[in-house]
């Protein structure tokens, strides 16, 4: 039996507080400096994501600040950031689309909900961080 499955995004992109829309600060007339340098208002961002070869404007669009862009210059909305991530992480994108990578919630038989890549992986430092675990079960002899 094949299920009629539709996909919907479950969570909006996880922006830092008070940071979006970017165009609130960045205007079209901004001078664009593509040489990696320290950016005052974004100094809390630690780039640990192929940082030797990449910098902000490799993913963020300089002309359309509220968008991301692909390697060929096409714009990508933050709500479709997986298209950007998938440029390098092809097999992961394929598995994510099939439901193998990442978490599916909602209904297994109709509306499956999915999370965007940045909901789990900080795009600036994507390695999954250790978590606090829940308490160990009681040993049998301790159960009264």
């Amino acid at each position: 039996m094949k299920a009629k499955v539709t996909l919907i995004a479950v969570a909006p992109p996880p922006f830092s507080p008070d940071m979006f829309p970017c165009s609130a600060c960045h205007g079209l007339t901004d001078k664009v400096n593509r040489v990696p340098h320290k950016v005052d208002f974004h100094d809390t961002i630690v780039l640990k994501h192929d940082e030797k070869n990449r910098w902000c404007l490799d993913c963020h669009s300089a002309q359309h600040r509220d968008s991301l862009h692909l390697a060929d210059g096409r714009l990508v909305a933050f709500t479709e950031s997986y298209r950007l991530c998938g440029q390098c992480h092809g097999p992961t994108l394929r598995n994510w689309k099939a439901g193998e990578h990442g978490k599916r919630t909602g209904s297994w038989s109709s509306t499956k909900q999915y999370l965007l890549c940045p909901s789990c992986h900080n795009p600036h430092s994507p390695h999954f961080k250790p978590l606090h675990g829940r308490e160990a079960p009681l040993r049998q002899e301790a159960i009264k």
């Binding site: 039996m1 094949k2 299920a3 499955v5 099939a98 439901g99 193998e100 990578h101 990442g102 978490k103 599916r104 919630t105 909602g106 209904s107 297994w108 038989s109 109709s110 789990c120 999954f128 978590l131």
Partner: peptide
């Protein structure tokens, strides 16, 4: 039609569930 609770709470998406008779299921 819902996923089991353990699938929903897993923070790393390690748990996968579905219909074995549906060739399009994860």
């Amino acid at each position: 039609g819902l996923y089991p609770k353990c699938v929903e709470v897993c923070p790393v998406g390690a748990r996968k569930f579905g219909n074995l008779l549906d060739p399009d299921s994860e």
